[in-house]
Structure formats: C-alpha cells, structure tokens
C-alpha cells in the first residue's frame, strides 16, 4: 500500500456501514410510523446487511489501514523562561487575595467568647431597668429556636424557665463563637492600623448586624421583635463587637504558607500570582 520506508500509523479505515445501519433504523422507523411494510422491510434488510458488514470489519486486520505520517509537523513549542509574572506584595490586586499574616483560628474563638461574656451585661441591665427582670431577655432569645414562645404571657416570660435558659445560652454561645470566627478571618483583611479594625469590628459590623436584625427579626423571632428595645439592642451589639474585636486585634498574627506549596516553607517570593 505505502512505502515500506515511510512511517505509518495504524488507523481505522473509512467505512459507510455505520451510516447504513443508522439509515436502516430510520427507514424502518418511517415504515413503522406510516404503516408501510416496504419501508419497514427495506430498513430491516439494510440494518442487517450493514451490521453484518460492520462486524466483519472488526475481524483482525480488516478494518484498519496504514495512515502515512505526512503533512506539516507542528512547530515546536518555544520556551519563554522568565515570563511568568508572580503576584507579589505592592502589586495591584495582591493585598486583596490573601493577607500575608492572619490571626490564628483560636483568636476568633477567644474574641467571640469574650464578646459573648460581655454582651449579656447591657442586655440583662435592660431587663432589670425596663422592669421585666433578669430572665426576660434570655427567654426572648430562646424564641429564636423554640416554637410556642409567643403563646406565653409577659408575666410568664419574666420568670426563670430552665428549658428556655438552656436554649438561650446555647444560641448565645453558638452565635458568639461563629461571629467571633468571622471576626478572626475578616479583620486582618481590613487595611492599615488595628484602630481601623477596631472601628470595623466594634462599630460597623454591629451596625450592619442591628440593621439586618431590624429587618429580619419579624421572620426569625417575632416575640423578640415585639418586645425589643432597639437602642439597648444596638448597645449590646456594640459591646460585643468592641470586646470581640479588641481580643482578636490584640492576639499574635501568624504567617500562612500560600496555597499550592503543600504547607512547605514559604517560597522566596511571597506572591503566588499565576499559580493555583
């Protein structure tokens, strides 16, 4: 067939049988649709003959041919060493990818728990000053998770109720810890000095939180929404935010190895721009 000297590659031979198999199927289909036996029979015969010839090509040596290696060869891929730009400190976009140093996870937890301990002070103070008593805010908080709180009277809500107390404490601890963790991750991304971080953590985020709560509390916790005093609510959030942010900001930062280095020592250039 071809020069013995020229390199060839064994390739499948072009064949018409797959086409005829498909055509036979469709003709038979058209015959079935129209109720025309002739089409049906013709399609069937085409299908059988073509399938038989197709299978025959699968026998060793029948369905392949030697395709000569010919035509232009691809141009070799040129190496361009030194053209990879690494995103590094000081370059636009670098700082927003990943802070060089972050707080350890424990800092966020500590901050959240500290804030969580400080926050009840204004909340309970409100309970006492508003005349509802110490347990009122706790019971209201539990309404976030427990159904049926809205059926209790104010007098009942002012008493100590062990279930509500337990649920309230769990909710408070969980939300405090989660928000603390968020602080730990978020605050290092705030540029410039710790004072800015304190501002964001102690004022901006509590404001956003209060605003969101104002909007959503009717859905999340209708009872709390009904009795809450928003000024005191905001004050509690500020106390939490300031304490949590202060604890986070005061903790020691650690260097995180960039992704893709498998936790090895950081590479000489701290950036990882073109890399995963």
């Amino acid at each position: 067939m071809t020069d013995p000297g020229r390199p060839t590659i064994e390739s499948p031979k072009p064949t018409v049988w797959p086409l005829v198999v498909a055509l036979g199927l469709v003709l038979a289909g058209a015959g079935a649709a129209l109720g025309t036996v002739a089409f049906l029979a013709l399609g069937g015969v085409m299908f059988v003959v073509a399938l038989w010839s197709w299978l025959a090509e699968l026998l060793p040596g029948r369905g392949t041919e030697a395709e000569p290696v010919a035509g232009p060869s691809p141009a070799p891929v040129a190496a361009r060493p030194g053209t990879v730009e690494q995103l590094g400190p000081g370059m636009a976009g670098y700082r927003m990818r990943l802070p060089e140093k972050v707080y350890p996870i424990s800092a966020g937890l500590k901050g959240g728990l500290a804030g969580g301990l400080a926050m009840p002070v204004p909340a309970l103070l409100w309970g006492v000053l508003s005349g509802h008593g110490l347990w009122f805010p706790v019971n209201l908080l539990a309404g976030l998770a427990l159904p049926g709180i809205d059926e209790l009277s104010v007098a009942e809500l002012e008493q100590f109720r062990p279930t509500l107390f337990a649920v309230g404490v769990v909710i408070h601890a969980a939300i405090s810890a989660v928000v603390g963790l968020v602080y730990g991750v978020l605050l290092p991304t705030i540029p410039r000095s710790p004072r800015w971080q304190l501002l964001v953590g102690g004022v901006v985020i509590p404001l956003i939180w209060t605003g969101a709560s104002y909007g959503l509390m009717g859905v999340a916790n209708p009872v709390l929404r009904h009795y809450v005093d928003w000024a005191w609510f905001a004050v509690s959030q500020f106390v939490f935010g300031l304490v949590a942010a202060a604890v986070v900001v005061r903790s020691e930062k650690v260097i995180v190895p960039p992704a893709g280095t498998g936790g090895a020592a950081p590479p000489p250039t701290p950036g990882e721009g073109g890399r995963p």
Binding site: I9, E10, P12, L58, P60, T64
Partner: peptide, 16 residues
C-alpha cells in the same frame, strides 16, 4: 504501540 503494524491476527484493530 502505534508504530508497529501488526499483521498478526491477535492484535485488535486499534489505532490508539
């Protein structure tokens, strides 16, 4: 391997 052109019947008609 691709460069070998098998005439032996044992080889499947493979192009890869």
């Amino acid at each position: 391997p691709p460069e070998v052109l098998p005439e032996s019947a044992a080889a499947p008609p493979d192009h890869t």
